[in-house]
């Protein structure tokens, strides 16, 4: 659906992005991670057509977006990491203003705006002035504004910052439903748990380069496979150590009393074989566990490698 092809951008000699390649499928949620200044917002702005890259192209359904940028932008929704507020505008007027820009008018616009506001429980405050809302409310309003025209691609820069837990859950659910309906989402966030619960694929930007990019399952698998396996045994510790040493997938063994920690680079099946051989040789095992990886680990892993 969206293909970001070899994008580079620099600001007066400082490279903000270098050779970025991303592919986003229809109905997928792509999480963009990276520290401050890694280039997330620049990438978001380029993807939303607000910034011109120095090099590279973006293809939307195999069409170069720069051939007709306005038409591309009508198919996307963009929510920046800030909330621009107009003085003296009411919530419903704010929504109707953007509905008008997208060519939705009259009763159709009223219906769509109220329908969206109801989703986030904001119908009751639609006659309130936007500048009197809390930060979380403004964020939700901004999100609703960006989907008013039912875009095919949603670009969200830090959408959950400033939201309380219940709002965050509400937003995640909303985005999951959008993805299920076929809308693709690009989301950047500092809150890694937000991304891990939501994303189908992730990309990690580090020092203006994409250091990890792929499906969530693949990345998790690669990280998990590097995680140690913890074996808590009750009896026959020496026999267990001997079996582990003989196994070709075990790289190293650390021993802490009855807890054995091994670095294992085999597959799930190899893991199962190891467990079977330990049990068959009479080793009593209390637990055999490879700690599940998470996005935080991915992030830390990248930082360690850097």
């Amino acid at each position: 659906m969206l293909r970001i092809d070899n994008i580079s951008k620099s600001y007066s000699g400082f490279s903000a992005l270098k050779d970025i390649n991303i592919e986003i499928e229809e109905g997928s949620i792509f999480g963009l991670m990276g520290e401050n200044g890694a280039g997330k917002t620049t990438l978001m702005k380029i993807t939303s057509g607000l910034l011109m890259p120095d090099k590279g192209n973006i293809y939307f359904y195999d069409e170069n977006i720069y051939a007709n940028i306005n038409s591309y932008q009508k198919n996307i929704g963009y929510m920046p990491d800030f909330f621009g507020v107009y003085d003296n505008i009411k919530v419903i007027e704010y929504m109707l203003f953007f509905a008008g820009i997208y060519g939705i008018y009259d009763k159709k616009a009223d219906k769509r705006c109220i329908e969206l506001l109801e989703l986030f429980g904001m119908k009751d405050i639609m006659q309130e002035y936007v500048d009197t809302l809390s930060k979380g409310m403004k964020q939700k309003l901004c999100l609703l504004r960006s989907v008013i025209h039912s875009p095919k691609l949603l670009i969200l820069d830090e959408p959950c910052s400033g939201m309380d837990t219940s709002s965050r859950i509400m937003v995640k659910q909303f985005l999951s439903e959008l993805a299920m309906d076929g809308t693709s989402v690009i989301i950047s966030s500092h809150i890694i748990t937000d991304l891990s619960d939501l994303c189908t694929s992730i990309g990690v930007l580090d020092q203006n380069q994409m250091v990890i990019n792929g499906s969530m399952d693949e990345i998790m698998k690669s990280i998990n496979e590097k995680d140690p396996i913890y074996i808590n045994i009750c009896e026959e510790k020496q026999r267990a150590i001997k079996i582990l040493k003989e196994n070709r997938f075990v790289n190293s063994i650390s021993i802490d009393d009855m807890l054995l920690m091994i670095n294992f680079n085999g597959t799930k099946n190899d893991e199962a074989d190891l467990l079977t051989s330990l049990i068959k040789s009479g080793v009593k095992i209390q637990s055999f566990d490879r700690k599940k990886g998470n996005l935080e680990k991915v992030f830390l892993h990248i930082k360690d490698n850097a």
């Binding site: 607000l50 920046p80 909330f83």
Partner: peptide, 17 residues
């Protein structure tokens, strides 16, 4: 003033001419 209020990007991202 749209730039100062950071609302210009919101408008420009809509594909409006």
């Amino acid at each position: 003033s749209e730039r100062e209020k950071q609302t210009l990007d919101l408008i420009l991202s809509t594909g409006i001419n």
